[in-house]
């Protein structure tokens, strides 16, 4: 009966070892993983050809002030925080441009919306107002920013 104590662990070990051999993983030659065909992460879209590539208002002081008013009036601050410093939505004052920093890309973010909660304001705002918002957003942290935070 003494050898039973040997047999049991042996049987268990056999079961365990049997589970070790997983499905064979396809490995490319020289052990390098095959390239990924699709790009990973959000890719900022190319500016639409018909759209002005640059903001018609540039850094016009009146347009910047109007942009600031629109930012308040349309509750942009509700998500992006006071002076766009960040809230439940991302900060627009920091260095990160998740969906691109060119005028056309920022315009697209506002007009068409982005994943994770940014609605498409293009259904509500005329193009001129969106450009004023873009002008204001791009003026943040520059000397031209209207009513900068104190």
């Amino acid at each position: 009966m003494r050898n039973w104590t040997l047999v049991i662990p042996l049987v268990l070990a056999m079961f365990t070892v049997a589970g070790c051999r997983g499905p064979a993983i396809e490995v490319a030659a020289e052990g390098i993983a095959p390239p990924i065909g699709t790009p990973v992460g959000p890719v900022p879209g190319a500016p639409i050809a018909s759209m002005p590539r640059n903001n018609p208002y540039q850094q016009d002081a009146v347009a910047l002030a109007e942009g600031r008013n629109l930012f308040e009036a349309y509750n942009c601050a509700g998500c992006h925080g006071d002076h766009a410093g960040g809230g439940m939505g991302p900060s627009l004052r920091d260095e990160d441009w998740i969906y691109g920093s060119t005028d056309a890309q920022v315009f697209n973010s506002v007009a068409e919306g982005r994943a994770n909660g940014m609605p498409a304001w293009g259904t509500k705002l005329p193009e001129a107002q969106i450009w004023k918002l873009v002008a204001y957003i791009k003026s943040l942290r520059t000397p031209k920013e209207p009513e900068p935070p104190v």
Binding site: A73, N75, C79, G87, M88, G89
Partner: peptide, 8 residues
């Protein structure tokens, strides 16, 4: 949450 404060 995704609901902003709307105070206007």
């Amino acid at each position: 949450s995704r609901m902003p404060n709307v105070t206007q």
